[in-house]
Simulated assay, not measured.
Amino acid sequence: MVTRSGPRRFQLVRHEDVSGVSGTGVVAEGVEWSDGTVALRWGGCFPTTTVWQDGIDALLTVHGHNGRTTIRWLDK
């Protein structure tokens, strides 16, 4: 199901590094596709790409750390 036309880019911003691994600031870049799927590219010492079929909410459930990490939308 398409929810909007085209992808939109975002940054994953960590305000407090609970685990001591990622650091703070922009820790990943991502794209939310028009069907809600998210592709996320982690930076830092261990760069990797992950895909979240269940979207932004699933990503933030795992990596949001109770609001210590947020999404900064780059596209409207």
Rank of each mutant, 00 (worst) to 15 (best):
Q53G: 08
F10C: 03
V51D: 01
G36D: 00
L59A: 02
L60C: 01
K76W: 08
N66A: 14
H65W: 14
M1E: 09
H15D: 15
T37E: 14
G20N: 06
R72C: 06
H63K: 11
A58V: 05
G55L: 02
N66P: 00
R9S: 13
T69F: 02
F46V: 10
D17A: 08
F46I: 07
L74D: 14
R14M: 09
G20W: 03
V27E: 07
V26W: 02
V2K: 10
D54Y: 06
R8P: 04
G55K: 01
G20S: 08
E32L: 02
V27K: 01
V27G: 01
V13Q: 01
A28Y: 02
D17Y: 08
T70K: 06
L12E: 03
L60R: 02
R4A: 05
S5M: 12
S19A: 13
V18W: 11
D35I: 07
A28H: 03
W42R: 00
E32V: 05
R68H: 14
G43K: 07
K76R: 15
V21E: 13
Q53C: 04
E32Q: 09
V2C: 02
G30D: 03
A28F: 04
L59F: 06
E29K: 10
L12K: 01
W42Y: 06
G30M: 01
T49P: 00
G23V: 04
V38P: 00
H65F: 14
G55D: 05
N66R: 13
W42M: 05
T70G: 03
G36T: 02
T48I: 03
V51W: 05
W52D: 01
L74P: 05
V31C: 08
T50C: 08
N66S: 12
S5I: 15
T50L: 12
L74N: 12
Q11S: 13
G43P: 05
L74R: 10
R8C: 06
S22A: 14
T61R: 13
W33C: 00
T49A: 13
A58H: 07
S5L: 14
D57S: 13
N66M: 08
T61V: 10
L60K: 00
V38I: 12
V51I: 15
V27R: 03
G55C: 06
H15F: 11
V21L: 12
L60Q: 01
W73M: 05
R8Q: 10
W42E: 01
V13L: 11
P7C: 07
I71K: 04
P47H: 07
V27T: 15
T48A: 12
S22V: 08
S34N: 11
G36V: 04
D54N: 13
W42Q: 02
G55S: 06
V2G: 12
V38N: 04
A28E: 00
G67I: 07
V62M: 09
E16Y: 15
G6V: 09
D54M: 07
A39G: 08
T70P: 01
G67L: 09
Q11F: 09
E16T: 13
R68D: 13
A58C: 04
V2H: 09
G20P: 08
Q53T: 11
T37A: 11
V2R: 11
G25E: 05
V51P: 00
G30S: 04
G43T: 14
R72K: 13
D35Y: 10
